[in-house]
């Protein structure tokens, strides 16, 4: 392709945006609507997932040792636990640390009456999981280890979090299917409008002897531009909305914001920007190729 032809094609792609203003607006609106829903859904789901993950990270299993167990065996047990794939962290809590923490949390000044550590046998490991649904399997394993007296866990928390995780997955799949169906419907309608607008122009090009590539290129450039604009608008809107909602939640519901940890706007948009732009460009590209394709066999 000559350089002049390349620039001509590029220019035509830009000009096409303004030639068929209604078609351009309809296409941008369609893509924006779909990607707005997608962005909104993504922001909510990732925050839910983040909250659940944070809660999971706080769920620990306590592993207590047999009386008088040697320190070397305790260390071995620690190493064995750390090797498990579902374990994210293992922390050793000595009997003294356990007593200090108990005093601080429950007794305060009343602890002065104790001369000896009543929790002398309470040295243990706190085991944190990266996948809370694996808790039962881990507990079974821990109980089978030599030198382990008792394993404490909170089954209700683990089951609840596993349930929430599954729910998020189901809801995500459901909403993605609905969004996909709506997008296909809206985009195919917009493409149909595009076909009727472009039919004559494509026919003329083909009669004069334009190659498929020459006919297609400006439309593809136009499609990509529509996709980019269509993706940028909802990104901007969601960015603004996200900041406003987070400000509102943290100022109005301070309790909620101390209990739950939300993602920052940057953390959400680190993924949302490339994904939305990619989807927008993809839709624009495929839509324009499909529009032109039907008329190329003239």
């Amino acid at each position: 392709m000559r350089i002049s032809s390349f620039f001509y094609t590029l220019k035509q792609g830009f000009r096409n945006l303004f030639r068929n203003k209604w078609f351009t607006l309809a296409s941008i609106a369609t893509i924006s609507a779909c990607l707005f829903l997608f962005g909104l859904f993504y922001a909510i789901v990732t925050n839910f997932a983040h909250i659940v993950k944070t809660a999971q990270e706080g769920v620990a299993v306590s592993v207590f040792f047999d009386d008088g167990l040697e320190e070397s065996r305790m260390q071995e047990i620690g190493e064995l636990i750390l090797k498990r794939p579902e374990v994210s962290d293992v922390r050793f809590v000595s009997a003294e640390e356990a007593w200090e923490s108990f005093k601080a949390e429950y007794l305060g000044d009343y602890a002065d009456g104790f001369t000896e550590n009543p929790l002398a046998d309470s040295a243990h490991y706190e085991v944190y999981l990266n996948d809370v649904s694996m808790q039962s399997a881990l507990v079974t394993y821990l109980e089978s280890l030599d030198g382990v007296r008792m394993v404490n866990r909170s089954e209700i928390v683990a089951t609840t979090l596993t349930g929430v995780n599954a729910l998020i997955a189901y809801v995500s799949v459901g909403i993605i299917i609905i969004l996909f169906a709506v997008s296909v419907f809206l985009i195919s309608n917009t493409v149909m409008i595009g076909i009727s607008v472009r039919k004559e122009e494509i026919n003329i090009m083909k009669y004069i002897g334009a190659t498929d590539f020459f006919v297609r290129s400006p439309f593809v450039i136009e499609g990509i531009l529509i996709g980019l604009i269509g993706a940028s608008i909802p990104l901007g809107v969601i960015y603004g909305m996200y900041n406003v909602v987070m400000d509102y939640v943290t100022t109005r519901f301070t309790m909620l914001s101390t209990l739950l940890s939300f993602l920052t706007v940057d953390e959400v948009f680190r993924v949302l920007i490339p994904v939305s732009l990619g989807i927008g460009v993809g839709i624009g590209f495929l839509g324009s190729v499909a529009t032109v394709r039907r008329h190329l066999r003239v």
Binding site: E200, N203, I204, K206, Y207, I208, G209, A210, T211, D212, F214
Partner: peptide
Amino acid sequence: PKFRRNLGVVFQDFR
């Protein structure tokens, strides 16, 4: 396309 480039064409509705 190469074939049509040697063929000029004029229609009733100008196109």
